[in-house]
Design a protein around this nucleic acid. Structure first.
Lengths: 139, 139
DNA sequence: CTTGAAGCTCTAGTCGCTATAGGGATTAGA
DNA sequence: TCTAATCCCTATAGCGACTAGAGCTTCAAG
């Protein structure tokens, strides 16, 4: 029923200092304390923390998580907002994939341009890093 | 021949405070100064800065760039190291793409699970963010 | 009752910049 | 030559999301 911060950490996979950090940032409520000032948590805290953890794993920034938590406190509100946050994040991830694929293409070209059997002055890799005009794309 | 930091910034696309930051970090050499203590650069500084900029654009972390610069100061050394840095970066970018694609798949599923025409208590998006076990993959 | 693990607070560091404050230098035009 | 606009200077702090460390207290097992 009441467990320590270390126990909560084990159960959620969120590190102890991170849990305290989330509390400081207002993502989780300050729990009750023992007489000796140690935090004691309940199941609801664990659910909240799992929610945060999963959202973070999915790449959501903390303000978005804050919004989702806010939203979840108002059960009767419509959930467009949650929808929007998810699609925004999807969009942002897709953009990052597009960007990284461009970098992948350039780097693949660069990394194969020289076998490491030259000296520095002849090195195509070094040349390529110095000269964007060799690139096929405006990364 | 000798140009100001603003001019250098325009020519390379690196912002003025960033140039000063690179100098502080030792990525570019401290240039000569005017009597009034303003920096004046030459072509070689511009080449160096373009090298840094392009490497950053390709996602290289600063320590890797530092290594490449070190290397380029020794023209007769073999260039395995440059090769290795490029392939490491390629590997890291490919890993990030793999990771982001997993997130993309989960988020695509989550974002289409609810059209925003529910209330918060019924919202599949909120449920999905809270519950990793619904996921198809261990992102 | 002792001991060792786990907890506490507070501060500072990570990375690669970016912003701001409060001043001095340079330059183009009148 | 003067002035106004623009540029440049240093130094410090902030961003996001933690993480590490110091120095202390509390808890639980034996």
């Amino acid at each position: 029923m009441h467990f320590s911060i270390g126990e909560l950490s084990k159960q959620t996979g969120v590190k102890v200092p991170t849990i305290r950090y989330y509390e400081k940032e207002g993502l989780i409520d300050p729990p009750v304390r023992t007489e000796g000032n140690q935090r004691r948590y309940r199941e609801t805290d664990r659910e909240r923390l799992r929610f945060i953890r999963h959202s973070r794993d999915l790449g959501l920034p903390m303000p978005a998580i804050r919004d989702l938590i806010e939203l979840s406190q108002h059960p009767d509100k419509p959930c467009h907002e949650a929808d929007r946050i998810a699609s925004d994040q999807l969009k942002s991830i897709r953009e990052r994939i597009v960007h990284l694929k461009k970098l992948e293409a350039e780097l693949a070209r660069i990394a194969t341009s020289c076998r490491g059997d030259h000296t520095v002055t002849q090195c195509n890799v070094l040349k390529a890093f110095g000269d964007h005009s060799q690139c096929l794309d405006n990364h």
